[in-house]
Design a protein around this nucleic acid. Structure first.
Length: 293
DNA sequence: TAAGCGTGGTC
DNA sequence: TGACCAAGCTT
């Protein structure tokens, strides 16, 4: 048996029943799920995914609405730039690919908001191709079980892809299943904080467990502050704009944060990022809610 | 390469 | 309670 075989056998018995894993789910549905899952936990994504897919079951449907609607529907999933990019992605799919999510990895990677992980995930999970798919879970599992290291540290994309590629079975379908199995293992068993080694299919062969013990050295990624940062102010500003049904006067936005300098910087950042548009001299709207559209 | 980007839950 | 974490991407 190999790591991949063990992982697949475990996955067959323990996989969560998530809607985007249904065989009937479209490539668009898979793509939407992957973007939503970038840094947002499954429990929060699931209801949002259902709402999103009910409203926009195809890229063309989303492309027909303004970005502001996508930003509103995104709700509180976080990192709302993803909503904007997903909208831009839908537009690009319509323009470049006739409304069909491409199955070619290079074309996928050229889409807005689609990076190394997401492009490979769609090619693999939606189209059944054989690619190494490495997210934070896979990185952690491979580093521990195969390489015997406590944690993977910052992403080292090229090396990670190579390491995972060596574990993939030769057949496309099993390779895809191995990738999702490694991800699920990292999410459910080989977790960052308290790995449940006693129920792990790799328990007997895990290099980390054999050689060392449990000793995750430090935080696996750089600690990120939130309170008091521009990110928090952007979030507060956007929260107001999301719920607005009419252009929002600057005076209303002034209420969300006391520091004028930081507030202005955050608002300018949202405009720069294309999430917000100034309207006239004193009002603001979500991108696409302006009269220009 | 590292920093910036939301939000909420856990311990 | 604050630190850490959650299917990353872009610049």
């Amino acid at each position: 048996m190999t790591f991949a075989d063990d992982a697949i056998a475990w996955y067959d018995q323990n996989a969560r029943d998530l809607p985007w894993r249904q065989p009937t789910t479209s490539a668009w549905g898979v793509l939407v799920s992957e973007v939503m899952l970038q840094q947002t936990p499954v429990v929060r994504v699931e209801p949002a995914w259902h709402s999103w897919m009910a409203r926009w079951p195809t890229p063309a449907a989303l492309a027909d609405d303004p970005p502001s609607e996508a930003i509103r529907m995104w709700g509180r999933l976080g990192y709302p730039r993803r909503a904007m990019r997903l909208h831009a992605c839908a537009v690009a799919i319509v323009e470049r690919h006739g409304g069909v999510v491409p199955d070619d990895l290079v074309q996928l990677l050229a889409l807005p908001g689609v990076g190394t992980y997401t492009g490979r995930a769609v090619a693999t999970f939606a189209y059944g191709q054989r690619h190494p798919v490495v997210d934070t879970n896979v990185r952690r599992v491979v580093c521990r079980a195969v390489q015997g290291k406590p944690d993977a540290g910052p992403a080292t994309t090229s090396a990670d892809l190579t390491a995972m590629a060596e574990l993939l079975p030769p057949e496309d379908a099993r390779a895809a299943r191995a990738s999702i199995a490694f991800m699920e293992l990292g999410a459910i068993v080989c977790t960052a904080r308290a790995p449940r080694c006693t129920i792990c299919p790799f328990e007997e062969v895990c290099a980390w467990r054999r050689t060392g013990q449990d000793l995750p050295a430090g935080p696996s990624r750089k600690p990120q502050r939130y309170a008091g940062t521009d990110r928090q102010v952007r979030g507060l500003l956007l929260e107001v704009l999301r719920h607005a049904t009419a252009p929002v006067p600057r005076q209303r936005l002034d209420l969300v944060w006391p520091d004028e300098v930081q507030r202005a910087r955050a608002l300018a950042g949202l405009v720069d990022d294309g999430l917000v548009e100034p309207l006239g001299a004193n009002d603001f709207v979500l991108a696409g809610d302006g009269p220009s559209l």
